[in-house]
């Protein structure tokens, strides 16, 4: 038996075979930033006449485990901007602290020059792009909701690569596949913003969150919903998906235990 110190505490070669040191890789590229750990799923948002509505569920998953069920993924910034986070939760917490320090700095003087949602989105997309260029991305896809400098409703997204995208309604994660078709049906292209009411927007988001809860395995039926208008931010963080019906589940075939 090998009594040299480097073998102490190691599985015995004669029982388990030679130890594969590749696992303890000390050279080569950094790998631990290349995947998220604890994650939040979709964020959905819709612009309406006079503001923006945004929703996300309260779940943080650890792989397939529903690890935390009271996580607030909609973060307020100032009096008229909301940032919705999907992706890595610890990176979200890091960005949240960045936002907090900016907010404190912005309030050193009271002269009314505040960062609006558009400024915030520009800033966050630069942060995300800088980090991806360092091969150390912040593993998030975010939506920023609020107003631009002309006081018009503003909604835009930025992802972990620093890609930005803007549209009257947006969704991240699974929502991009499951919620966007619903929103497109409800608010077809070229629908003027003026014709969408706040209630319609909120109802649409609730519908999207419900469908996501039905079909996205990493989602939760508890969710947060925020509405940004000129009057300020209303945020509700203890919403529940109502009137659930799983009757449709029986008809689903093709995966899971029942293959045919």
């Amino acid at each position: 038996m090998n009594h040299f110190p480097e073998a102490w505490g190691r599985p015995r070669d004669d029982v388990y075979g030679a130890y594969n040191p590749l696992y303890l890789q000390t050279t080569g590229p950094k790998a631990h930033t290349q995947s998220p750990a604890v994650t939040g799923t979709s964020v959905v948002a819709v612009k309406f006449n006079g503001g923006v509505a945004i929703a996300a569920d309260n779940l943080a998953s650890y792989g397939s485990l529903a690890r935390f069920t009271d996580v607030k993924r909609l973060r307020k910034f100032g009096e008229s901007a909301i940032v919705g986070f999907s992706g890595d939760v610890s990176d979200m917490q890091y960005i949240d602290r960045l936002l907090e320090s900016i907010d404190i700095r912005e309030n050193y003087s009271t002269n009314g020059n505040t960062l609006n949602a558009k400024n915030l989105h520009t800033y966050l997309s630069k942060v995300l792009y800088k980090r991806r260029s360092e091969f150390n991305p912040l593993w998030n896809h975010i939506l920023v909701a609020g107003f631009d400098e002309d006081k018009k409703p503003f909604l835009s997204s930025a992802d972990l690569l620093g890609t930005t995208f803007s549209a009257p309604h947006l969704a991240t994660g699974f929502g991009a596949h499951l919620a966007i078709p619903i929103l497109r049906r409800l608010f077809p292209e070229e629908t003027p913003l003026e014709s969408i009411s706040k209630d319609e927007a909120v109802a649409a988001l609730r519908e999207c969150i419900k469908v996501l809860w039905y079909r996205d395995a990493r989602s939760l039926d508890k969710y947060s919903l925020a509405v940004v208008t000129e009057a300020g931010i209303e945020i509700q963080e203890d919403q529940q998906v109502e009137a659930q019906s799983w009757a449709f589940a029986e008809a689903i075939k093709g995966y899971g235990a029942q293959v045919n």
Partner: peptide, 10 residues
């Protein structure tokens, strides 16, 4: 008391 990491959870 302080919020849990900026009120990320309760």
């Amino acid at each position: 008391e302080l919020a849990v990491d900026g009120q990320v959870g309760s």
